[in-house]
C-alpha cells in the first residue's frame, strides 16, 4: 500500500512541480505572481483537445501545436498587457493577471463551457503499464513522470547551457545592467512568459485526464502549484520542484492516514505553515530591504 502511495505522490508531485515551475519562471523574471497561469494552461489544454479530437491530428503534432500556441499566449500576454501598465506596481500587476485570468475563463466558458468533454490521450488513466501485488502504474502515471522529467531537463539545458538562458539570468539579476550590455530585456521577459506558459500547458494536458476538461479545471491545481512554489521558495527553480514533490507526498500521506475529506486543504495549511516559519521558503535566501 505504501508503495502505491509513493507512486501517487510522485505523479501528483510531478504535476504540482510543473505548475510551480511555470509560476516560478515568471516570478523570477518579473516578481509578478501570475494568477492567470492556471487559466492559460486550461486554454492551451482546450487547444490540444481541439487539435486532437476535432481536427484529428496525431498526438505529437497536437502537442507541438499546443506548445506553440501556449508560447504565443504567454508572450502576447506580456507584450499586450504587462508591458503597458502605466504605473507599474505589484498590486497593478496582480490585478492585470487576475483580469487576464477572468477573460480567459470567460472566453473558455463561452465557447466550450456548456458541453462535457471526454479527452482521449494516447496515455490513458485506465490502461495499466506495470502491475505487482502492491503497485499499479497506469499509462497516465508514467507519462506524467516522464513528461515532467523531460520538461525539467529541457529547462535545465535551456537556462544553464544556452545564450538565451544566460540572458534570462542576467535580466533577472539586474535589468538595467543587462540592458546596457545589449540584452533586449523586454523581449527576454516576453520569452520568459512564453516558456512559463509552455510548462503550464504541459501541466494542463496532464491534469485534464484525471479531472474533467472544464474552464475551472486548473483552480485547484493552481493553488497546489502556488503552495509548492511557496514551499520551495518562489525564486529557486530546483526548490520549487522539490516543493512540488514534497507537497504531493504530504498530501497523499495526509489523505491516507488522516482525512481524505480535508486533503484539499493541506496545500493551504502548508502555505500558512511555511510562511509563518520561514517566509522565504525552504530554498530561497531571505531578502532584506536596504534603506
Amino acid at each position: 500500500m505504501i508503495s502505491q502511495l509513493l507512486v501517487n505522490a510522485l505523479v501528483a508531485g510531478s504535476i504540482y512541480a510543473l505548475i510551480a515551475l511555470s509560476m516560478s519562471i515568471i516570478y523570477k523574471a518579473s516578481e509578478i505572481p501570475n494568477f492567470a497561469q492556471g487559466e492559460m494552461a486550461m486554454f492551451s489544454t482546450y487547444i490540444t483537445f481541439i487539435l486532437l479530437s476535432v481536427l484529428g491530428w496525431p498526438f505529437l503534432y497536437a502537442l507541438a501545436g499546443t506548445l506553440v500556441f501556449a508560447f504565443c499566449l504567454g508572450f502576447l500576454f506580456e507584450f499586450i498587457f504587462i508591458r503597458r501598465a502605466k504605473e507599474p506596481n505589484l498590486l497593478g500587476f496582480i490585478i492585470i493577471t487576475l483580469g487576464f485570468q477572468m477573460v480567459l475563463y470567460g472566453l473558455a466558458g463561452w465557447k466550450w463551457g456548456s458541453d462535457q468533454r471526454t479527452f482521449s490521450l494516447p496515455f490513458s488513466e485506465s490502461e495499466v503499464v506495470f502491475q505487482t501485488e502492491s503497485v499499479v502504474l497506469t499509462e497516465h502515471n508514467l507519462a506524467s513522470i516522464v513528461l515532467a522529467i523531460l520538461v525539467m531537463a529541457g529547462l535545465y539545458l535551456l537556462l544553464e547551457h544556452t545564450n538565451l538562458g544566460l540572458a534570462m539570468k542576467a535580466s533577472q539579476q539586474n535589468v538595467r545592467a543587462a540592458k546596457f550590455n545589449g540584452i533586449p530585456t523586454n523581449r527576454i521577459l516576453g520569452i520568459s512568459f512564453g516558456i512559463s506558459s509552455i510548462v503550464g500547458a504541459i501541466a494542463g494536458v496532464l491534469v485534464a485526464p484525471i479531472s474533467t476538461l472544464d474552464p475551472s479545471m486548473m483552480w485547484d491545481p493552481l493553488l497546489k502549484g502556488f503552495a509548492a512554489a511557496v514551499l520551495g521558495g518562489m525564486k529557486s527553480l530546483h526548490g520549487v520542484v522539490i516543493g512540488g514533490l514534497l507537497l504531493g507526498l504530504v498530501e497523499n500521506l495526509f489523505g491516507f492516514y488522516i482525512s481524505l475529506e480535508f486533503k484539499s486543504i493541506v496545500a493551504f495549511a502548508i502555505i500558512m505553515l511555511v510562511l509563518f516559519i520561514k517566509p522565504s521558503g525552504l530554498f530561497d535566501k531571505h531578502y532584506v530591504r536596504k534603506v
Partner: peptide
C-alpha cells in the same frame, strides 16, 4: 449556451483596462 460567461470576460477587461488607462 455559454453567453452568461460574457460577465467574466467583461470583468476581466475592466480590471485590465482600469489599471492600464
Amino acid at each position: 449556451s455559454g453567453i452568461a460567461n460574457i460577465k467574466w470576460v467583461l470583468t476581466g477587461l475592466i480590471l485590465i483596462g482600469v489599471i492600464l488607462f
